[in-house]
Every structure is written in C-alpha cells, then in structure tokens.
Design a protein around this nucleic acid. Sequence first.
DNA 1: AGTGTGCATTAATCTAGATTAAGAAATCAG
DNA 2: CTGATTTCTTAATCTAGATTAATGCACACT
Lengths: 156, 156
Amino acid sequence: MKKISIKKGEFLQKSGDLNTKVYHVQSGLLRSYIIDEKGKEHIFSFAPENWVIAGSLPPEVPADLYIDAIENSVVLVVNKDIRLEGKNAGALIRRIAVLQKRVIMLMSDSALKRYEHFIQTYPDIVKRVPQKMIASYLGITPEALSKVKNERNRNH
Amino acid sequence: MKKISIKKGEFLQKSGDLNTKVYHVQSGLLRSYIIDEKGKEHIFSFAPENWVIAGSLPPEVPADLYIDAIENSVVLVVNKDIRLEGKNAGALIRRIAVLQKRVIMLMSDSALKRYEHFIQTYPDIVKRVPQKMIASYLGITPEALSKVKNERNRNH
DNA sequence: AGTGTGCATTAATCTAGATTAAGAAATCAG
DNA sequence: CTGATTTCTTAATCTAGATTAATGCACACT
C-alpha cells in the first residue's frame, strides 16, 4: 500500500478521473466536492485523520468528485478490493447510515438545525476549516451561515 | 427466510422499532420515510419489485424510518447478515453511490432538475405513485411539484 | 344515487435563503 | 514587513419554494 504526502491545496483526484482509489487519511485533512455548472463548489465530505475518502465507488466509473487537501496531509492508498471484506463492510454500513441522515436533514431541517448538528457531530472539523467550507457542506452560502451564527449567538 | 404478504397501507416497521430487518420486495411497492417534528412525511426511498428496503442498518440501533406498503406486496425477510457477504457488498456500494448522488442533487439542483432526474431514473415508479409522494421524495410540497410540472409542459 | 375523504391543481401571500455589493479582518506571497 | 488576495460579515434586494386557502375530481362507502 502506497503512502502519499500531499500539500495543502493539491489534488488527489479530479472529477472525470478513471480508476479512482480509496484513501485512508493518516494525518491532515482532505475534502471531496463537486463543482456544479455555475462553477459553485459543494463539499460532499471532509476526511480528517483515520477517515477514509473515496471518489466514485465503483472504481471503473469516472469520478464525480474532486478530492484535495485542506491541510498538508499523508494518506495511504487503499487496495480497492479491501472495501468488500469483513470489517470493512461495517464501515460501508456506517457510511450508509451517515448518508441517510444527511439526506433526511437536507430534506427536512433548516440551515440552523443542520449547522447545530454539524458542530456537535464534527466539533474538531469546525475549528480547522474556513466558514465558507462549512457553508458549502451544509448546502448554504457563507452569507447565510453568517446570519445563522448570529441568530444562534443572540439566543445564546 | 420468511415470506410476508402485506396489504396497501400496512406497516412493516415503525420509527423506533428495534431489531429491524432487511426486506427484499418480490412484488408490489413499498416506501420508507420519516415523520418530522411538524408531522410532515419525508420519503426516503421507494422499493418496487426486486429492490431491497431496510430500516436502520445496523439492526441493533432503533429504526428511524417507517416502512409501509403503497401497493399490496410480498416481501422476503432477509437474514441480516447476508448484507455483509460477497455479492451483497456490491449492492451496498451501489446504494452508497445512489445516496451520494441524492445528497449532491439536494445541495445543488433545483426542484425542476431533481424532478427531471427522478422521472428518467424511475419512470415506472412515477406511474405507480401519487404526486404528493413524488413531491415528498424530491423534498418539495405537492403544490411546488404542480408548478414545476406546469413549467415543464410550457417549455414542452 | 348521494356524500364523504383524500388527491391534484391554481392562486395569493409569505419567508428562508440566494444574490449582489461593499467594507473589515485575516492570510499569504514576496 | 507590506501590499495583495482571500475570507468573513453586514446589509439591501430578490426569488424559489412554503404556506394557506379554495376549487374540482375521483374514488370509496353505506
């Protein structure tokens, strides 16, 4: 398994790439995101230490995500087939649970509730990432996030 | 593996249930959904023939979804652990891909685009399900869906 | 046949969050 | 250290979609 060092701002994968890999983050912080037709970024996931981040599973399909480094990072390139084995299936199921909750939140919760959920689920990421990326992950603009935070402080 | 017949409107599972199962639909049509604190339904997934539908994976966690029948249906109760084996891992990965696309669509696409995507991805479901359920799946109100369809017809 | 009850549509109004713009604060490059 | 480029915030305006409400339909039922 190859170990890769990647500097802040560098890409691990771009949308359209074939033969994508799965990466296990050893240190640092990565993100995956799409760029829509208006050129706007939408962050799909953050991956700090000990998380896994992947382009498109299955790997024979072109990636629809960009992956780049928010901090200087070291990642392990995981052999793709490991995903399918024993304890890794557990990780897949956890991933599905997280995605399911995210879909439900996007359908039914306000920006404020999504933000509350985010900061209490990923408190460390909140501190390490610029606001505009949090907004992007929540599916709102940075301006809207500013408003939300204000409102939140008012009702301390 | 038990086979169960379930009539239109009956429940297979309710939010809060423990020890949830995975169901393989043999005939008919099911849906899974949440009810938010305002009492509003949000459909998480439809499951026609040959699809699988599940409450919370993992099964030891209380279900957060309701599952009921939109048509009279017959389902197979799947032994939970089958999920983790061989070819079923492929199904998990496909499920993740679908969820990923859904998250991205909810974050970046308009109601119109989500509707277009839905009717061309699930053309048979469109015909079998009331409009309000399609709206609920798309994350909009039935009124908004009516508008969208109108607009769509105008630009035939 | 009549009479509910739920579904779909239209229209009027309202609102969360988008967009645009501009200034202040932070970060970066040389 | 310093100017330049990003980031964050505030404020004004705009808009997609929510809410509310009314109407017409298609069914079930007794």
